[in-house]
Design a protein around this nucleic acid. Structure first.
Lengths: 244, 244
DNA sequence: TATTCATTTATGTTTGTACATAATAATTAT
DNA sequence: ATAATTATTATGTACAAACATAAATGAATA
């Protein structure tokens, strides 16, 4: 890649400048904290206007790859605050997005009588069995989350589905059930014997515990999910903007 | 919030325009697919230049809240889940809403040199001390959360403020700093000796650990907050709805 | 020595202007 | 009727110019 701007190219100048900057900041010198040339000079060097250059820089600033400091200059942003609002991605997709291969350590389907709490949420009777799906998942080295899901009978799951596939994709394509609303409750918990055994930690050590209530398009309950995450292995990110 | 631009305000026009747009696109009409007024007209209406308006629109386009279509116009993008549902309540207000009286077990101000992580977030040098606020809080019976806050020097806190008051109210009324965006990372942790001592639990037992990055109106970092919640005493709720 | 003040410098904000381009709508030619 | 052509219209790109502002630096002052 050549580090100059081609004014005759069909590629917009600010795009060229952006790409050029992306290359430039890979240089160890800049990674080490060296400042970029100031905007006025750099614009002159690249033979584009400062406005156009700023357009390119802005993009990288948005991406938190560059940091501007008034009077000092612009430099490479080191450890960027990762704020990937993971929220609606499935576990599999989220892991894949981070480049971590997902492995199923356990995958177990059973049919159980719902307890009062679940029956109440689903608004069903306790006399009829519903499907329970247990999944122990992690990367290739270790399991770090234990999921327990219960599904509303309305969906019509048989238990023969391929649960290695992303769950919400399966429900949407094969059962026409679309998750529309999720309410979650996150707390810390001490692992009991069962959970400790699954995650291979000592009983009493901390886990991140997540209850998830999932509703479909008609706001009808469709899934009740419990997740036990090994501490340190999982961070839940939430982004909120004031709206008022 | 008034939907007009104040040319006399100290708040930059493009920021005002950005906020205004955020409000505007909440209108069901726009949510339903109506196009925004075209840039030239809208700029005229708001009495700002098209360039300035584009600056604001660009931000929302980058956030994937708006979609531009050449020749067609700009409209609200509805596709992803909006995970933005946090409670903008402060701890005090939240507790009061639940009818639990808040008590401060400890309230301690100190001035410390920021470590690399904090300096990086605030984008400041490590040589200059910043204010650190420690608060141990709970109900009348027991303390169940330990907060550590660091504030950006820009805010100009002296340390003599009345921190028994709700924090964000204090910052807003007395220092004209408004929290606008917060990014949080929630995880489970084992309590170390310090935390265990504060919360009066045995070291190693679980706590809900929450990092909070708070930004002001200009999206500039203003507070870095750490919260250690005694397990079982606190549940974090998140509601996410797909808007398509 | 410590504090205050002015200077410097790079980014931050804003406007006005002009032309390019993609996609649609309207028109014309086959 | 269909295809090709031509407006039309909104965004896209690009420049120049000017002034504002935050923060570091160094000079003047208490």
């Amino acid at each position: 890649m050549k580090l100059s701007i081609d004014h005759k190219s069909a590629v917009p100048l600010h795009i060229q400048a952006e790409n050029l900057l992306r290359e430039l900041i890979k240089d160890p010198e800049y990674q080490a904290g060296k400042l970029l040339p100031n905007e006025v000079d750099l614009a002159k060097i690249l033979a584009i206007s400062r406005t156009t250059l700023r357009q390119a820089i802005n993009k990288l600033v948005y991406e938190e790859l560059l940091i501007r400091r008034k009077r000092l200059g612009t430099k490479v942003a080191h450890k960027k605050m990762s704020s990937k609002s993971m929220n609606w991605l499935s576990f599999t997709q989220e892991m894949q997005a981070r480049g971590i291969p997902v492995k199923n350590y356990e995958l177990h389907v059973s049919w159980v009588y719902p307890d009062d709490y679940i029956a109440n949420f689903f608004d069903i009777k306790t006399e009829k069995k519903i499907m329970k799906l247990e999944r122990l998942r992690g990367n290739t080295d270790e399991a770090f989350v234990y999921f327990v899901s219960y599904f509303h009978p309305r969906i019509g799951l048989t238990g023969d589905e391929d649960f290695k596939r992303p769950l919400y994709e399966l429900l949407e394509t094969d059962h026409s059930v679309v998750a529309n609303l999720s309410k979650e409750e996150i707390s810390a918990k001490a692992a009991d014997k069962l959970i400790a055994g699954k995650l291979e930690i000592t009983p009493g050590s901390p886990v991140l515990f997540r209850k998830r209530f999932v509703f479909d398009q008609g706001d009808r309950p469709m899934e009740y999910n419990l997740g036990y995450y090994k501490a340190e292995s999982f961070v839940y990110t939430v982004e909120a903007r004031r709206n008022s």
